[in-house]
Design a binder for these strands. Structure first.
Lengths: 209, 209, 209, 209
DNA sequence: GATTAACCGAGACGGTACGTCGCGTCTTTTG
DNA sequence: CAAAAGACGCGACGTACCGTCTCGGTTAATC
């Protein structure tokens, strides 16, 4: 058998190039913003020639999405504090944190800027969100086991309720987003789940207060 | 026939041009999407020359934001059904409706696409949201008068809680957004407000379940 | 009626641009040679932007051929000295002259370099030659009238016989090409025509000494 | 097994590579023309990697010229029919033939295309011509011996006179080139030589018809 | 009712970035 | 040690759209 180096790491200095370009992509995004994002700038910052970038990424879009996706695929710890409230607080604050750093801001902006219509970026957005959602599921499961939440609580619905106000502020109202925002989201979510508004059965039914 | 342009402030045939270009801008956005949005295309669709567009709008951004803002400034009725739940339902459903039409979709996309960093567009986004928020205030006021809600209920917070899950689905999860989504948002919001989570005093404090 | 300025001269500074680019094209050709011929260099030398060149010429080939053709379309005087020999000598020497200047050399090189397969250039080559051929016809006609040449002398054949050895030296043997070359060509041509080898009737027949 | 490469100068399997690449070079030239001539294409056609080609030829130009030169160095028979006219006819027809085959056409084109300024190619061109010229000399010598031509006939001048009209048609007028063309060239050449226009002494003097 | 000023149509232009192609170099792996 | 494999720097290509700039020609309000 020949070898599988063609699929694994791009043989030679390829790996180095790849990393440099990814880093440069994010750096450019943070420094100059999406508007001034050009392949040539990225290439230059990465100490690499333009055509080399185009050899690996067919598009500026590909370059962008790949770098963003790769950056977002960082480890988010699944909290396990023993109580649903503190667990949710940890989740919400972690979400807040990931978008309040300058880098986070830039990423967020790029994620939506020049992007709504780009299927790849939309997919990346969804993927990142789903990733977080999956990590939230065990938190809900444990809370149910502990008897803190009703057995029919829908974890996805719960997490969306938790995340929604944070994204709203980030993307639309441009209110400051900090720990207080996270805590308020927790308060609302807990109220809703305790009122049975996040039970799997109820979701989709008309609301009878 | 040249007829009655007697009411138009913009001197000559200006008004006609302005309207045609605005319409063409939105139409292009809906038909081709933001990606293929170019001044020349808009001009051509409006039956007007490119330079004429540049004479009135300094930028493609200006063109875009102005058209979007103008389009969003439509009348949203303030519901008054006599009960907070049905009022909120009306508000939520109206919000859903305004983004589910093809035009609404395009507008929404354009609002975020190529835009996160553009101050003008960001302002437009905020403005549109604030507009809806303002319309929601009397609804809350009436509910307080009726004794349905606590006197310290924060109308802004309430409306954000109502709107957040809808925007989340529109912008991030790409879940289908329909009346059920609106109703679920109402359920959560009511649960939160009844639990006192939307009281002006509490917001910003730590959450004690 | 509107006006026909759209087809005539390129309205504004167009004419100036055109001339500048033509000149720059030839200058680049002469200075740097065909190998280093690039649209960008031409544009820069013409004090014009690259895209402006591409607006008027679809191709570097078009640019090249047009400039060459335009340059070759210069006036070549039709000699009328009263005797066929001196007329032919004038023709031959004029041919020699047009390719011995540095510019002429560059033109000639460009005409063949990167060109054999380009239909436009091939056509240009033929055209230039035909142009000279046409100018030679009256010379032959007058010689026939004077009784110097036989009535059936084929002017085209005669001119080709005259020009052939010059081109051979220019393009293949790279022998020096000067007035002596021209004179020798005349000598051969006269010998041939006097021997009846350039009679329209004979051409195409087998040669019987 | 490395086997018997004892006769080959190019160390290992080099000879095989060399032949394959030469063949591929010409084939590419004939099939696709000079325009589409790229080192990679040639390499691929030769079943060899690009770098292998660059190991042996420093340049695409080297590759080209070498292949062309090698191909042109084929044996052209020296005619000896016993009469100058038929000998010249043989020479001329052989010249015509070598450029009327598809391969000949491609070679000719490549010889001039992208080449006029390349010293190597120019040298190759001259060499090929000189080669033919040398072969023509004995023909003239024998004719002088037989008393058919004057003793001072310049063989080089004679051959150039013979070849010139053929090249003219091939390279410039694009007239069809066939046996009639060859025969006409013979007729002119004979007329010239018999009129003493190709005598070594006269060449360079003014022509006194 | 002619004049005049504002506006529009037409289109070339300088400029930035795009994505592509081919050249010739280099490094790493394989036989 | 040569060949296979393929990434890379490099330079030019030709394209698209941006926003600017005359230049005429119309249109409308004004004297």
């Amino acid at each position: 058998m020949k070898s599988d180096h063609s699929t694994a790491q791009p043989v030679g200095r390829g790996a180095k190039v790849l990393a440099a370009v990814h880093a440069a992509t994010l750096a450019e995004l943070v420094d100059k913003g999406y508007a001034a994002f050009s392949v040539e700038n990225v290439a230059q910052r990465a100490g690499v020639h333009k055509t080399t970038v185009y050899r690996r990424w067919k598009d500026r879009v590909s370059l962008l999405t790949e770098a963003l996706a790769e950056h977002m695929a960082m480890d988010i710890p699944v909290p396990d504090t023993g109580a649903i409230e503190t667990d949710l607080r940890a989740l919400a604050r972690s979400l807040v944190q990931s978008f309040t750093s300058p880098t986070g801001q830039a990423i967020l902006a790029a994620m939506f800027t020049g992007a709504a219509h780009l299927p790849e970026l939309a997919a990346a957005r969804r993927h990142v969100f789903d990733d977080r959602l999956v990590r939230a599921e065990p938190v809900v499961a444990r809370a149910i086991e502990r008897g803190e939440l009703a057995g029919d609580t829908d974890p996805a619905e719960l997490f969306k309720t938790l995340a929604a106000p944070i994204y709203l502020r980030l993307l639309i109202t441009a209110d400051p987003v900090d720990e207080a925002t996270a805590d308020q989201a927790v308060r609302v979510t807990l109220a809703a789940v305790r009122a049975g508004a996040l039970g799997a059965a109820r979701v989709g039914e008309p609301a009878y207060g």
